[in-house]
Computed example of a mutant assay.
Amino acid sequence: MRFQNPANGHIEEFGEATWLWVLVGGPFYLAYKQIWLHAVIAAVLSLFTAGLSWVLLYPLIIKWVIRSHYAKLGWKEITEGKAVVRSSSGAPSTDVRILSTPPDGDYRVLGEIMVKLTRWTPLERKYGREDVDQRLREKALALGANAIVNVRYEQKDESWTNAGSIEGRGLAVVSESDTTTCPFCAERIKRAATRCKHCGSDIPKAA
């Protein structure tokens, strides 16, 4: 489950093994995730039920608890593989290109971004490059980038701590086109042009 704050684009993510973290951490996990109301309720119930509610109740209803919590906050749930995450300015994540080589023309590097997706138990689905790409786009979008270059992936097998993971890294960049819009006729022209080839107007140097 993934939820986005529409105010600033921040995303919170919960894996399919969230029930396991609730089973292990109980109210402490809910407090860590700042779900304060249910952290208090879970703590009180565990006292009256000798911990049975911690073990038998909350692992079963944790998805409902999380969804209701973020719904009350006004956050939007992201449907995996379907939703188009948008920045606070309204730009969609699908606008961010993933390139194996630097883009044509000038570009400006905003910084390196990294995503690591881990399967904590064999019960969780296996993540692929599509999942990594989606999250890389979201991170790049948050930086104001419109492309990611030099993307590389690393798949790791199961270990004694998890059931495998995949990692993706790349450079978030702003690809600056060598064309611009004529201020008089709105047609595309070369950025270095001094006269519009469409309407014949002289282009101010500041354009």
Rank of each mutant, 00 (worst) to 15 (best):
G200S: 14
L73C: 03
A7M: 12
H10R: 14
M114S: 15
A207D: 07
Y127T: 07
K205W: 11
L136S: 04
G90F: 09
R97T: 05
A193M: 06
Y153S: 08
E80I: 04
Y29L: 08
T79R: 14
E13A: 11
Y32K: 03
C185W: 11
A147F: 00
Y107N: 07
A192R: 14
S93M: 09
S88E: 15
P102Q: 00
K190L: 12
H10L: 11
V55S: 06
R2Y: 06
N162E: 09
P92E: 09
N146R: 06
W75F: 13
W36M: 00
G164K: 05
V40C: 00
D133N: 09
R129P: 01
E112G: 15
T49N: 10
I61T: 15
S87R: 06
L45H: 09
T180W: 10
A42R: 04
T161R: 12
W36F: 04
S87W: 06
I11W: 09
A42P: 05
K156Y: 11
N5H: 03
T94P: 04
R125P: 01
T181N: 09
M114V: 10
A207N: 13
T181W: 11
I113N: 04
I61D: 03
S89E: 13
N162S: 10
I113R: 01
P183S: 04
P103Q: 00
V173K: 00
P6A: 12
L110C: 00
G51P: 15
E124M: 13
L45M: 15
T94W: 07
K139H: 08
A83R: 07
R67T: 11
I189S: 02
L30E: 00
T161S: 14
